[in-house]
């Protein structure tokens, strides 16, 4: 990662805003993930150095919180909500259908790196269960047919605003 990288400049700004304080580590990791998309080892080493913290500490914090991604995610991300209401309403069947249709495993990406299937514990949209998020769009009362067609549209570059 070149330090002349524009992204590194943005990260430096974030670090500065937080006064290089140890207590802002979570906020800094959030921003870093937003800037870079994910947090790889080099980036974590870099952050540890900037905050004057042992790399083990930064690594420990990053791996503790499930929100932080340490591997490069696919171009498009489908996130399935595994909250209680979604589970009761059959989100498992939708997940299985996505796995089968796009030939990927939960938590992983397709071979071409176009699509990842991830999970969240609950997005609080329980009254609309089951909920599936495609990139930033939340699909409530999802069915496998709707979800698969939306994913296909997304992969095909068709913008689809209807829910």
């Amino acid at each position: 990662m070149a330090t002349s990288d524009n992204r590194r400049i943005r990260l430096e700004k974030v670090l500065k805003e937080h006064n290089y304080q140890e207590s802002a580590l979570l906020e800094i990791l959030h921003s870093a993930q937003e800037i870079y998309g994910y947090l790889d080892r080099n980036l974590l080493m870099d952050i540890a150095g900037s905050l004057n913290l042992p790399p083990s500490h930064v690594y420990g914090v990053t791996t503790f919180y499930s929100f932080f991604k340490m591997r490069k995610p696919g171009e498009h991300i489908v996130t399935a909500c595994l909250g209680t209401a979604c589970y009761v309403k059959g989100v498992e069947q939708i997940i299985a259908a996505i796995e089968k249709e796009f030939n990927l495993k939960r938590g992983g990406s397709t071979a071409d790196g176009k699509l990842s299937l991830l999970f969240t514990r609950c997005i609080g949209a329980c009254a609309m269960a089951p909920a599936i998020i495609i990139d930033d769009q939340v699909i409530g009362k999802a069915t496998k047919e709707i979800v698969i067609s939306k994913i296909k549209n997304t992969l095909g570059g068709i913008k689809d605003e209807t829910v």
Binding site: L26, E27, H30, V61, Y65, F68
Partner: peptide
């Protein structure tokens, strides 16, 4: 504001403290 990062246990009262301090929410 302080942001969580997907750890259920961080809602526990001693864990939330260490998380606000930027550490593992144990």
């Amino acid at each position: 504001l302080r942001f969580g990062a997907g750890a259920f246990v961080a809602g526990e009262e001693t864990a939330i403290l260490v998380s606000v301090e930027g550490r593992r929410a144990q």
